[in-house]
């Protein structure tokens, strides 16, 4: 929806946005450029281009720091987790928002209450739990923990999105002969696609970048996630000060997120133009 505004106002608007975006672009560009430098170059010429774009840092993280393996692990595990969270959270949020039964609001609050708990306090108990059921040092165990800790926010956010369209839609669909399940799939999901996409994006980002649980619960290097690899890179920087390599790792970790976001952005655009409610 675009307003018609005076030319000067429009120019001002563009200026503000462009200025802000410029800062973002420059920041990213700086990170990218620095990843092609050597450490010495970094400190002699912080804000200038390197003398040569060497790929040493990237080779280093790919081979030496084995980020290629970790990248693969993350790119498989994280989307699966995100999907599983949706499979669990969307129906739950729907039922907690639109259905009526006893304890509905209590259960909803029960989920929302979890958002306030700092996960770190559950770190050791989770370790012992996973160990007891034999899922320590497995990606499934880690995934179950990720899913469990993401449900609160996901359900809460979906509840917010589900709540904001009229109930008549459900009834209209039922009258049309849909079973509740069908109405769920055909009516609810498309209309709340924005909410679902928002939750997907958020979960993807937060799980992709999460390293503490992944560090403690997974010991086998073969199963390590990228976020832990980057964290290790950054931690070893305390000793080596190898910033440029760290940036190469950061860029590597960033790329899939940008790709994912660009993909999702198209869907958001669709979501934005689709589906006004027909009165």
């Amino acid at each position: 929806m675009e307003f018609r505004v005076k030319k000067t106002a429009k120019v001002l608007c563009y200026l503000v946005l462009i200025l802000w975006c410029l800062i973002v672009i420059l920041s990213l560009a700086w990170i990218l450029i620095t990843s092609f430098k050597t450490n010495r170059e970094l400190y002699q010429e912080i804000w200038k281009l390197p003398s040569s774009f060497n790929l040493d840092n990237y080779k280093k993280i790919w081979d030496l720091y084995d980020l290629s393996q970790f990248f693969l692990n993350s790119i498989i595990v994280v989307p699966i987790n995100v999907i599983l969270i949706l499979v669990l959270a969307v129906p739950a949020a729907f039922v907690l928002t639109r259905a009526e039964f006893r304890f509905r609001s209590h259960i909803l609050s029960f989920f929302i209450f979890g958002m306030g708990i700092p996960v770190i306090i559950a770190l050791f108990p989770m370790y012992f739990l996973l160990s007891d059921i034999g899922l320590l040092n497995t990606l499934s165990g880690l995934s179950l923990v990720y899913i469990a800790t993401s449900l609160s926010f996901s359900i809460f956010m979906l509840h917010g999105f589900f709540g904001s369209y009229p109930v008549e839609l459900d009834e209209a669909a039922t009258i049309d002969g849909c079973t509740p399940f069908q109405s769920f799939i055909k009516v609810v999901l498309p209309l709340s696609s924005t909410g679902i996409i928002t939750v997907t994006i958020f979960n993807f980002i937060s799980i992709w970048n999460e390293y503490m649980l992944a560090l403690i619960f997974i010991r086998d290097e073969a199963k390590r996630l990228l976020s832990v690899g980057i964290y290790a890179l950054q931690a070893s920087m305390q000793y080596t000060g190898d910033w440029v390599t760290l940036f190469a790792g950061v860029v590597l970790a960033l790329l899939p997120l940008i790709v994912f976001f660009v993909l999702m952005a198209d869907r958001i655009m669709d979501g934005l133009t689709v589906g006004a409610v027909k009165g």
């Binding site: 669990l88 129906p91 739950a92 039922v95 989920f111 559950a122 739990l129 449900l151």
Partner: peptide
């Protein structure tokens, strides 16, 4: 629709959090 979420949530988050 609700039970799977509740199960995972309670077993793998609430229960360890309460222990913690």
């Amino acid at each position: 629709f609700l039970v799977p979420s509740l199960l995972v949530y309670i077993i793998f988050f609430i229960y360890p959090a309460l222990s913690g």
